[in-house]
């Protein structure tokens, strides 16, 4: 179990799925970062004269709106580009929040063992017994939907995989002599967990992080589609699919475009995760 060994980085570029997935993720991230510069129009600007213009590859398409406009005359490409911001923001924030919770619990459980482990496993079992979607629905119904609520709810619900993976890896590491040596030299338990054990868990953590990020994007899209996620008029991809469902028979492209965007980004993130798994720790397979 080596962490990021230097000599492995060149392999990362030769790994096909990692390169492809990483390329797409990077492209989407750039688009999201530079959204105001890249987007041809204001994503909120309604133009009722230009409603439901189809994309350029259809007969009535025009280059002013390459991906057409929606039912309120808003430029579809601009909304798609700005929507990438929301998806990526959710992915990062949820990944970070759930990663912190899961890693913390997993480290403590794996390192201390005993009753700490039992307590963490108890919390974990309870968490796994909770129906995630129902809880999200309930919270949104009580508090109301917003980006912050979605991030907090998903962040506090999706830490289970982090906890499981980190726990078992930390258990293995905690039995090695370097942990004993550090403690014989007077390291505190906290220092041992964070400075000695954690660096050796980077590989599995990165892999779980990608899985959870892809997962968060999908759930946000699903929630927004149900009208329980990011409230309109924000340009979320899930919300775009939701708003397009009235037009599914006459303007199916309205659903295809954000749908393909979600699919591509999630696929790309998963490819990155698969690639990282091969490159970082060939021996670590779930």
């Amino acid at each position: 179990m080596t962490a990021i060994a230097e000599r492995r980085w060149p392999d990362a570029f030769r790994h096909a799925s990692l390169a492809a997935g990483g390329g797409v993720v990077l492209l989407v991230a750039l688009m999201a970062l530079l959204a105001p510069l890249v987007a041809p129009h204001d994503p909120f600007l309604q133009n009722l004269d230009h409603r439901l213009i189809p994309p350029v590859w259809e007969a009535e398409g025009r280059w002013a709106h390459p991906l057409g406009t929606d039912a309120l005359g808003r430029d579809y490409l601009s909304r798609l580009i700005h929507g990438a911001r929301i998806s990526l923001l959710i992915a990062l924030a949820v990944g970070l929040l759930s990663g912190l919770i899961g890693t913390g619990l997993g480290l403590a459980a794996g390192y201390y063992g005993g009753w700490v482990d039992t307590a963490v496993l108890f919390v974990l079992t309870n968490r796994l017994a909770m129906p995630g979607v129902l809880i999200t629905l309930a919270v949104v119904a009580i508090v109301g939907g917003s980006l912050t609520v979605v991030i907090l709810v998903l962040g506090f619900l999706n830490w289970d995989r982090f906890a499981v993976v980190v726990r078992s890896a930390a258990q293995r590491e905690a039995n090695r002599d370097y942990v004993l040596a550090a403690s014989a030299h007077g390291s505190s338990a906290l220092r041992i967990m964070l400075a000695e054990i954690l660096p050796n868990l980077v590989g599995p953590l990165l892999v779980v992080l990608t899985v959870e990020m892809a997962h968060a994007i999908l759930i946000e899209a699903a929630l927004s589609f149900l009208g329980l996620g990011v409230p309109p008029p924000n340009p979320s991809w899930g919300l775009m699919v939701n708003e397009a469902k009235d037009h599914i028979f006459f303007h199916p492209w309205m659903i295809f475009i954000p749908g393909i965007a979600i699919f591509t980004l999630v696929l790309a993130i998963n490819l990155v995760g698969d690639g990282l798994r091969d490159v970082l720790a060939p021996e670590w397979r779930p």
Partner: peptide, 14 residues
């Protein structure tokens, strides 16, 4: 202070 048996396990690989 200790010196352990297995230096593969007693030194942190990272």
């Amino acid at each position: 202070l200790p010196v352990f048996q297995d230096p593969y396990s007693s030194l942190n690989p990272s």
